[in-house]
Design a protein around this nucleic acid. Sequence first.
RNA 1: GUCCCCAUCGUCUAGUGGCCCAGGACGCCGGCCUCUCACGCCGGUAACGGGGGUUCAAAUCCCCCUGGGGACGCCA
Length: 463
Amino acid sequence: MTKVVTRFAPSPTGYLHIGGARTALFNWLWARKNRGEFILRIEDTDLERSREEMTRAILEAMDWLGLDCDQGPYYQSQRMDLYREYIQKLVDTGQAYYCECTPEEVEAMREQARARGLKPKYNGRCREKNLGPGEGRVIRLKAPLTGQTTFNDLIKGPIAVNNEELDDFVLQRADGTPTYNLAVVVDDATMGVTHVLRGDDHINNTPKQILIYKALGIKQPLFGHVPMILGPDKKKLSKRHGATSVMKYKEMGFLPEAMINYLVRLGWAYGDEEIFSREELIEKFSLENLSKSASVFDMDKLLWLNSHYIKEKSPADLAALLKEYVREFDADLSYLEKIVPLLQPRAKTMVEMAEMAEFFLVADEELQYDAKAVRKFLTPEAREHLQEVVNRLEETKDFGQKELEQILAKYLEDAGIKFKVIAQPIRVAITGKTASPGLFETMEVLGKERTIKRMKRAVFFEG
RNA sequence: GUCCCCAUCGUCUAGUGGCCCAGGACGCCGGCCUCUCACGCCGGUAACGGGGGUUCAAAUCCCCCUGGGGACGCCA
């Protein structure tokens, strides 16, 4: 059995988007599962649109997702000689030819075909002209006029296309650079790629590439076309649907674990299981369980997975992460580490967690009070209770949840009131809001001094 | 327009001819828990696009229709 080699080959014309990330993930998983190799290749043959910063952004996103490669990144822009060599081979063997038609002329041919209700194609005008190299000339593949090109897709099954549908497409542009289809074939072949897993928007390119493999007389890899990811309107996912860049999700406070888990389940399933660790995925991933149909990106489910992984992660790790999301961080990590457990069951994203952590981090005198909360809960009676509770809190040395609970219980008994009566006032006093983690745990983390300071401030606070 | 691909709850999906008057998950609704908000737990809502076949038996196989998506570049 030969070693499995997969690759991810983005073009640096944009950021790594959701769909690309999933394709990369599937390739990565397949390589890892089979103890094969995963190659990263930057497809930058279009020197006009390729941007170096995009390459960096893609690499950064791959890194964030933890999709490490064994080879590369390779750059097609650095392999031009190799492509030229293969193209020359095709010209020499009469399987490719120079064409002097201008883009306008070709467009006219296509227009003509369209007018007759046919598929727009180049009409093969220069096919038998036997032209040599020259200014403005491209090289086209002399594609078969009849017959069928077929392949057995790993995901979709048998696919057949009549060769009449294909035309003599361009292999080398007028500027001497190779086109996508040629470069992909040369690279996949020379890099020993065994499995090409890519978006099914490439399905129509596959027959063309197979024609090149055949013309070159080289072994072709196995192809698998994964379905597209759609927006809620069922159209191909794009900027119109909001964030599509993977790194945007990092910014929005998603964990890479959640991202990976979500992406893999979009188009792949393993029975009824929903949660997968990286190791489980490598063990359980399989091509047979990939679905054939497109799937809709669902933010709610991503959010659910993210909150799951937030609950699962260690407070220490989260504290370190949270640091990046909190504005003006001046406390130390150990303090954040105490806050995090209170927020884990509540925050769905790191951004949310940062917002929820805000009142812990702000200076006591700068704590913002919600006006409505003040009006509703800091009533004159409530303020009296608050003052009484402060008096009792000042006398305690221990400020742990247990002690606090006892002190409050004693006060309730003495004052003859229910906890409900003072719970919200205290909460508003120390957090400024009506919603927060449990009162006692919040007080403990805040500490005696700050809790009391805030409560005292609340007693006389005027909204 | 032409070609290619696809078709189970709103969404992600299980299902590979009988175990399915279709299971899980997200969401949504209701309840429980409760110091608020969450978490958690329990329950509920909701789908095989339509029509023909094949078969003792079809969500599962075949055909047609419809619907959706994609591709038709000297982009990838």
